[in-house]
Design a protein around this nucleic acid. Sequence first.
DNA 1: GTCTTGCCTAGATGTATGTCAAATTAGAAG
DNA 2: CTTCTAATTTGACATACATCTAGGCAAGAC
Lengths: 129, 129
Amino acid sequence: MSKQELPIIDAGVDASGPACCAPLVCEPLSESEAVELAPLFKAIADPVRLRLLSLIACHEGGEACVCDLTGAFDLTAPTISHHLKVLRQAGLIDSERRGTWVYYWINPGVLARMSSLIGPVSPAFAETV
Amino acid sequence: MSKQELPIIDAGVDASGPACCAPLVCEPLSESEAVELAPLFKAIADPVRLRLLSLIACHEGGEACVCDLTGAFDLTAPTISHHLKVLRQAGLIDSERRGTWVYYWINPGVLARMSSLIGPVSPAFAETV
DNA sequence: GTCTTGCCTAGATGTATGTCAAATTAGAAG
DNA sequence: CTTCTAATTTGACATACATCTAGGCAAGAC
């Protein structure tokens, strides 16, 4: 689950470059790749959602019920629910109802893909010095 | 300038936990940390800005002039300029005018910090299984 | 059955954001 | 100085987003 596969970036490297064995392993993101990736970053581009993600990840057992999360914010329950929905629709978290409570947990594969895209591992943003 | 210091994440791990050597090295993000980090992700939470960053990083010499970037989009020059300004104000890129042209290059330290926050390296989002 | 609690949905509202056209600054060339 | 090109700033506009209140649905307690 915690593998980093980054298939999207590989799809963008279509070797349409010149020919020779230059160290130019860098291919910029295509428009479709960018359109697909941007919503993932938009999902975590909010202080509340960043903290929600962190609270879920750091909660014991790797999962947290909504009642564990609302207390950390000065926001109403519907607002928290809205942010959780945004994270879930982006694929960053999953949820399940067990009895009275609904539990959320992190999808580590998506986060790993995002991390490797902007990280020093990724050719798309590596320092080309 | 290109050092990766990530002081914010370290500031969050203040070892206020119990005592014993349990593998619970996870401390959720504080509100102030989240407020400071969210704008960084918001800066790249746009397809145009993701591609701009990628185009700059992949350009030869690690820098690109604006005229190298505008051709990749169906957008007007002011719009590209706006997005470059957002990236620069977030600290993700820097720029310099040399004669007629303005050149942009990536600030790799900030991207590395963002990557390590959401990556498997960071305790804040590590799988706690 | 009724009541309570936990969570979500729907609608409304104010703010933020992406985009463009027009005007502006900065440098180079005539 | 004038003119041309490169890039940004300004102002306007439509859309998207974060938040709230009010209401709805599910599960358990009585």
